[in-house]
């Protein structure tokens, strides 16, 4: 029987016999090609480029002018104070940004009621996340402005009095100078992070609101009968059920913190001083495309460090996903 079977099968085309093997690749091909060209291959090119010194130019024959320098770029990074400032700022971002998770939970708990108009309130609370970070950066930059921003106006209302000077113009005499947050090497980073937290808290809030919708009400009622309430109820009954929301909230917050670029670019451009608000993402950009000529190799080395940090979180995320996949089958 087997012999006759192979006889008839060979008449069928190879394609037909292997239909279920070939089809997925046909479906996958466009996405895979596209993703490989723009995402996967460039990652390896960057890693490779970090071992070169290159100003991005090609010679007359179209060959790249890159020069192999080995790990020289990384040695330079080690001794580069701007790199360390950026790295420390990235750590500050990471730590401070984590506040978005409990803050988002807090607002979600506050809003998880069903009074009339609640839907609109929830969407309006979510508003900051939808706005571009460029706009958020501009809004806060203006908010912090000591001369005509909200912070400046409030400060003047409390600490200053209007006087008319000899020439006849209105001036302010202040008992304490108006703080210029974004020009202070100490406070500028925190000022930017606060601005970044605004949309991030909104994001975490929406994750928790969706999570709270699905908390099993019978467990809550049962716990209530047992006398649980307030913090204890939140900690022992509600939070364990919100674990998927917390997981996603932490992941997107970490990524948001490490990706911080727009806000720094808009609000301070890395300044004041010697890059006191720089973060790796912005320092890399500044180095690779600077006014003093392009430094692709050194920039790629910075990008590689940032990538390595991110890889820790990506691996953790993939590990968790893998566990879920195994559990699902």
């Amino acid at each position: 029987m087997a012999v006759t079977d192979t006889g008839t099968q060979s008449k069928q085309s190879w394609l037909k016999r292997n239909k279920l093997t070939v089809t997925p690749w046909v479906f996958l091909a466009p996405a895979l090609c596209f993703f490989a060209i723009y995402v996967v291959i460039p990652i390896f090119e960057s890693l490779w480029l970090s071992l070169y010194e290159w100003n991005g130019l090609y010679d007359a024959d179209g060959n790249s002018t890159a020069v192999w320098v080995g790990f020289d770029n990384y040695v330079k990074l080690w001794g580069d104070p701007k790199f360390w400032t950026s790295l420390v700022n990235n750590v500050i971002w990471l730590v401070m940004f984590m506040l978005a998770v409990p803050a988002g939970l807090f607002i979600a708990l506050f809003l998880n009621q069903s009074v009339p108009g609640m839907r609109l309130y929830k969407s309006l609370f979510f508003f900051p996340f939808v706005i571009s970070q460029v706009v958020v950066g501009l809004i806060f930059g203006w908010f912090y402005n000591p001369d005509f921003g909200v912070v400046g106006s409030l400060w003047k209302a409390v600490y200053c009095e209007e006087t008319v000077n000899i020439v006849g113009n209105l001036t302010f005499r202040c008992s304490a100078p108006v703080p210029d947050i974004l020009s202070s090497e100490t406070w500028a980073t925190y000022g930017i992070i606060l601005a970044g937290l605004w949309p991030q808290i909104a994001y975490c809030m929406i994750l928790y609101l969706t999570g709270l919708n699905n908390v099993a009400s019978d467990q809550i009622e049962a716990a209530r009968l047992d006398g649980a309430k307030g913090w204890k109820m939140l900690w022992y009954v509600v939070l364990p059920q919100l674990r998927p929301a917390t997981f996603i909230a932490v992941v997107v917050t970490v990524i948001g913190a490490l990706r911080s670029f727009d806000m720094v670019a808009i609000m301070t451009g890395g300044g004041p001083g010697e890059g006191s608000t720089n973060v790796l993402a912005y320092y890399m950009y500044e180095t690779a495309i600077s006014e003093y000529g392009e430094r692709y190799g050194y920039g790629s080395a910075i990008a590689t460090v940032l990538f390595a940090i991110m890889l820790v979180y990506i691996s953790y995320f993939l590990h968790r996903m893998y566990q879920d996949e195994k559990g699902g089958h």
């Binding site: 996958l28 996405a31 895979l32 993703f35 723009y38 995402v39 996967v40 291959i41 460039p42 990652i43 090119e45 960057s46 480029l49 991005g56 992941v251 990524i255 490490l258 990706r259 670029f261 790796l280 993402a281 890399m284 950009y285 690779a288 495309i289 692709y296 920039g299 790629s300 910075i302 990008a303 590689t304 940032l306 990538f307 991110m310 979180y313 990506i314 995320f317 993939l318 996903m321 893998y322 996949e325």
Partner: peptide, 24 residues
């Protein structure tokens, strides 16, 4: 599954690691 994870991972990487090659 590995291919799926490739798409997932690519989604989380920092833009800067792509910047120079994509620009070039």
């Amino acid at each position: 599954l590995p291919l799926f994870f490739l798409f997932v991972a690519g989604n989380f990487i920092p833009f800067q690691i792509l910047m120079v090659p994509v620009r070039d």
